[in-house]
Amino acid sequence: MHEFDWSSIPGSLPFLWQGMKVSLEITISAVVFGIVWGTLLALMRLSAIGPLAWLAAGYVNLFRAVPLVMVLLWFFLIVPHLLESLFDLPRGADVRLISAITGFALFEAAYYSEIIRAGIQSVPKGQMAAASALGMTYAQAMRLVVLPQAFRNMVPLLLTQGIILFQDTSLVYVSALADFFGAAYKVGDRDGRLVEMLLFAGAIYFVLCLGASRIVRHYQNKLKTA
């Protein structure tokens, strides 16, 4: 029978907090960038301009058809070289965080763009017609009339995707970047208390994600009654 020993947790809390900050940093940057890029992709995909729609569809299909962990590895292997040659960085500068954020953002944008595309399509066609009839250009009608309604409908889905993204940040362990999961793993490995540390980390993920999805559900209900 395994004897649990939780004594390595209190001393390592500051280190774990550093890891949590990395996880949150990746999540927030990837969500923000993913929504912006995802919106552009969705608009491209819905546009009447063939090549644009085709490009966006290709991008989305590509990223949705490969495993996230592989994308992260690609970026971990490619982006540092790219940055080094582009900005003349000293060899071996730590660009793991940047490459992780880039990888996540580009990957998540594919998923966000599908959510946003569905959101745009959920706004009745008559809204676009009414905005056009008032003399608005396509861009004005999108920005002022269609997108605000689409995003209001989409907020729960976008947040849920953000929660999934937060869980997926643990995959950066492939680049040995110490996010929350990576930090917990390192401490457990050092102290020979891997099981305890991973259980602890799992509990923290569980509490955070469950709490966040409760908030999303609350918001969703409020949206329904509004």
Binding site: P124, G126, Q127, A129, A130, A131, A133, V145, P148, Q149, R152
Partner: peptide, 12 residues
């Protein structure tokens, strides 16, 4: 000016 069957006011 145009008026539609389903009003199409902007609900937001």
């Amino acid at each position: 000016g145009m008026v539609f069957q389903n009003f199409e006011l902007f609900p937001h």
